[in-house]
Each structure stands twice: as C-alpha cells, then as structure tokens.
C-alpha cells in the first residue's frame, strides 16, 4: 500500500508541519508518495526538508513533481531534483537545469564534511555581499556575519548529526509575513537531533524534564554542547547574536519541538512542543531587508 502525502501549495517551515502530520502515522517501512503536483512555491526550508524526509524512510519513497512549469523550473534551478532523484522515484516532468536564478544564492547543496562547509562559504560570499548590502540595505558588516552564520549552522551537521544533510540559501520578497525582501538560510538533516546529541554531554544532570524542547533550550539558549571543551557552543550563540543584531529570525526544529528567536516583525511562538516527530535538526535563519525609516 502506498500512502499519499500531500504537499501544500506554499511550502515553508510552517506548512511543512502539515506534511509531517500526514507522515506521523505512517510506519517508516511503508511506501509513500510525496505529492507536490499542486505545490506552487517552496522556501529553501521546504526544499531541503523534502530531501531530508526521504532520508527518514526505510522504503524508497515516490515523489510527484509540481505541475506548474514555473515551479518545477525553479526547483530544477535550485538543484532540488539533482538530489531528489537519488532519494525518490520521481514522477512527472522534471526539466533539466538550465542556467541559474538570481533568487538562488546557494543551490541545494549536500553537507557532510568539513570541506563541504568550506565550499559553501566560498560560494556564498560574493553573492551575499551583493544581496545584503544592495537588496537588503544592510551594513556591509552583515555580510561577514552572514557567512559565519552559514558556516556555523552547516557545521552542526558535520559535528552533531551523524549523517549528511542539505543547505540552501535564497532571497525573495516575503509578501505574506513581512512585505520586504529577505534572505533565508535553511539547513536540514535527518541525523540524531539535539536531544540525542546532548544526552552524551559531560556532567549532564538527569532531571524529570528532558525532552526535545529541553534539549533545544539547552543548546540554543544556554550554549550547552555534548563536548567537554569549554570553547564549544559558541557557534549557535554567534548565530543568535547575528540574528538579534540584524532583526533576523532563527528557528530550529528537532524531534518533536521547535524553538525560535522571534523578532518584532514576526508572530511566531518561541517554543512549540508535541509536534509530529521528525528526526535530526532543521534550522532556518531569515534576515530581512532593513525597514525604511519613517520620515
């Protein structure tokens, strides 16, 4: 039997939860068809999370590509299908990638080892400079922090996930929530997740409240790391500072919980618990265009 998992028309970090809700009752060894035929748009989070989803399945899943030419063409230009065809049985017409897209700052890129992070950072730098200072009207200093942020989030995969994941970076106008241009980084993996990673932390005090939410709070808010080295845990702290400085948003989902550093322009909740389970960690950073100052 094949269970059909419908992809919503607009796929981002929020609507991906609808995908996971459908997936939750389906055993991992059961065949699924991820039906994206009616999907019109996906954020980098949506694209990388779809690849991650396939990694969680014991039985190779099927994938129905978007029917709209624009959508499927854009997904091809992000290199989504390049990796999707390794993980899914693809259905529908999938065009070959032709040329690049100015909205794509970094195509969907696998991250598994330290060299991948070098490659990602080198590739993003020239484009990031252009988009951050010109399109987002942010200080040039934001460019360096952006590359550092990207590097640190990708390293979480290398250091903690236990298996490879994906990163993608796009710029677009976020009409629905913000009405401004944004740059969005998404880094998703289907690895061991924050809770499992921190369970190996030295000196961890076992208490009654130990779950995915507690693990996320420990890592993101208190900078706890599974390594004894006192220099560890600075990466996510740096990402938090960067987001705070440029009114950005950081959200991390792991297991059944999701933590977010919510800027003024967003109405998200800081912590969500009891979400449908999903392995690994899914990180999103959103940096918005500087708001025009009022006259």
């Amino acid at each position: 039997m094949t269970t059909v998992i419908n992809v919503p028309p607009s796929l981002d970090d929020q609507t991906f939860e609808q995908v996971l809700e459908q997936l939750a009752p389906v055993p991992p060894d059961e065949k699924i068809l991820v039906d994206a035929r009616h999907c019109r748009w996906a954020s980098p989070y949506g694209l990388t999370a779809l690849l991650t989803l396939a990694q969680t399945r014991a039985e190779r899943p099927a994938f129905a590509a978007p029917e709209t030419e624009d959508t499927v063409g854009y997904w091809a230009r992000t290199d989504f299908f390049k990796y999707a065809e390794e993980l899914y049985d693809l259905h529908g017409t999938v065009p070959k990638r032709t040329g690049g897209d100015s909205r794509v700052l970094l195509e969907v890129t696998p991250v598994a080892k330290s060299e991948d992070v070098h490659e990602v950072v080198e590739r993003i730098q020239a484009k990031a400079q252009q988009i951050i200072s010109t399109e987002l009207s942010l200080d040039a200093k934001a460019t360096v922090g952006f590359a550092m942020t990207l590097s640190e989030i990708c390293q979480n995969i290398v250091e903690h996930a236990g298996r490879g994941g994906w990163v993608a970076v796009q710029a677009y106008t976020w009409k629905k929530r913000l009405g401004r241009r944004v740059v969005q980084i998404a880094v998703c993996d289907a690895g061991i997740g924050f809770r499992n990673s921190l369970e190996g932390a030295p000196g961890r005090v076992r208490d009654d409240r130990w779950d995915d939410a507690a693990a996320l709070e420990a890592a993101v808010i208190r900078g706890v790391s599974r390594f004894r080295d006192p220099g560890r845990g600075q990466g996510l702290s740096g990402v938090r500072r960067y987001c705070g400085r440029w009114e950005g948003k950081l959200s991390i989902r792991s297991g059944t919980a999701r933590i977010a550093l919510v800027p003024k322009w967003d109405e998200d909740v800081p912590l969500e618990e009891n979400l449908p389970p999903f392995p690994g960690a899914q990180v999103q950073v959103t940096i918005p265009e500087r708001a025009a100052s009022k006259p």
Binding site: V117, V121, E122, A147, V158
Partner: peptide, 15 residues
Amino acid sequence: TVSANLYSNLVTRPT
C-alpha cells in the same frame, strides 16, 4: 592545510 588549495576562509573546527 585544507585539501583544496583555493579557500581563503578560516572556517570549521577541523580546519
């Protein structure tokens, strides 16, 4: 130090 010699950024713990 790093395997590809084109990089100019000091990133990652192993590096």
